[in-house]
Computed example of a mutant assay.
Amino acid sequence: MAQTYRTKREKVYLSLQDKIIKGVLRPGTRLIISNLAKQFDVSEIPVREAIQTLAHEGYVSITPHSGATVSSMSEDDIRQIFEIRINLESLASRLAVDHLSNSHIKTLYQMIEDSKNFLHNQDLQGYGEFNRAFHDCIYQHANNQRLFTMISELWDFSTRYPAFFSSLQDIENSIREHKEIVDALNDKNADLVEKLMRDHTRDVYHKIIRLVQQENNE
Results as ranks from 00 to 15, higher is better:
residue 18 D to G: 11
residue 18 D to Q: 14
residue 18 D to C: 06
residue 18 D to F: 09
residue 18 D to E: 15
residue 19 K to F: 10
residue 19 K to W: 12
residue 19 K to P: 04
residue 19 K to N: 10
residue 19 K to I: 00
residue 20 I to F: 02
residue 20 I to P: 04
residue 20 I to S: 02
residue 20 I to T: 01
residue 21 I to P: 06
residue 21 I to L: 05
residue 21 I to Q: 06
residue 21 I to D: 05
residue 21 I to H: 00
residue 22 K to Y: 08
residue 22 K to Q: 14
residue 22 K to G: 09
residue 22 K to H: 14
residue 22 K to I: 07
residue 22 K to M: 10
residue 23 G to N: 06
residue 23 G to D: 01
residue 23 G to R: 03
residue 23 G to Q: 03
residue 23 G to P: 02
residue 24 V to L: 09
residue 24 V to N: 10
residue 24 V to F: 09
residue 24 V to Q: 10
residue 25 L to E: 01
residue 25 L to S: 02
residue 26 R to H: 11
residue 26 R to K: 12
residue 26 R to F: 10
residue 26 R to M: 09
residue 26 R to L: 13
residue 27 P to G: 08
residue 27 P to C: 05
residue 27 P to Y: 09
residue 27 P to R: 06
residue 27 P to K: 06
residue 28 G to A: 01
residue 28 G to C: 04
residue 28 G to P: 08
residue 28 G to H: 06
residue 28 G to V: 02
residue 28 G to M: 06
residue 28 G to R: 02
residue 28 G to I: 04
residue 29 T to R: 11
residue 29 T to A: 14
residue 29 T to K: 12
residue 30 R to A: 15
residue 30 R to T: 10
residue 31 L to T: 08
residue 31 L to M: 01
residue 31 L to G: 00
residue 31 L to F: 04
residue 31 L to Q: 01
residue 31 L to C: 04
residue 32 I to D: 13
residue 32 I to F: 10
residue 32 I to E: 15
residue 32 I to H: 11
residue 32 I to K: 08
residue 33 I to Y: 05
residue 33 I to P: 04
residue 33 I to W: 07
residue 33 I to Q: 11
residue 33 I to S: 04
residue 33 I to K: 01
residue 33 I to F: 08
residue 34 S to Q: 11
residue 34 S to P: 05
residue 35 N to F: 12
residue 35 N to A: 11
residue 35 N to Y: 11
residue 35 N to D: 13
residue 35 N to L: 11
residue 36 L to H: 00
residue 36 L to S: 08
residue 36 L to N: 04
residue 36 L to R: 04
residue 36 L to C: 07
residue 37 A to Q: 04
residue 37 A to M: 02
residue 37 A to W: 03
residue 37 A to T: 08
residue 37 A to E: 07
residue 38 K to H: 12
residue 38 K to Q: 14
residue 38 K to A: 13
residue 38 K to R: 12
residue 39 Q to V: 09
residue 39 Q to E: 15
residue 39 Q to I: 08
residue 39 Q to T: 12
residue 40 F to W: 00
residue 40 F to N: 05
residue 40 F to D: 08
residue 40 F to M: 01
residue 41 D to Q: 14
residue 41 D to F: 12
residue 41 D to I: 09
residue 42 V to L: 06
residue 42 V to K: 03
residue 42 V to A: 03
residue 42 V to W: 00
residue 42 V to N: 01
residue 42 V to Y: 07
residue 43 S to I: 06
residue 43 S to F: 01
residue 43 S to Q: 05
residue 43 S to D: 13
residue 43 S to E: 04
residue 43 S to C: 00
residue 43 S to P: 02
residue 43 S to A: 10
residue 44 E to C: 10
residue 44 E to N: 14
residue 44 E to I: 12
residue 45 I to N: 14
residue 45 I to S: 14
residue 45 I to G: 11
residue 46 P to W: 01
residue 46 P to D: 09
residue 46 P to F: 00
residue 46 P to H: 00
residue 46 P to A: 06
residue 46 P to C: 03
residue 47 V to W: 04
residue 47 V to Q: 00
residue 47 V to R: 03
residue 47 V to G: 02
residue 47 V to C: 03
residue 47 V to S: 07
residue 47 V to P: 00
residue 47 V to D: 03
residue 48 R to T: 14
residue 48 R to A: 11
residue 48 R to E: 09
residue 48 R to D: 08
residue 48 R to H: 12
residue 49 E to Y: 13
residue 49 E to W: 10
residue 49 E to C: 07
residue 49 E to P: 08
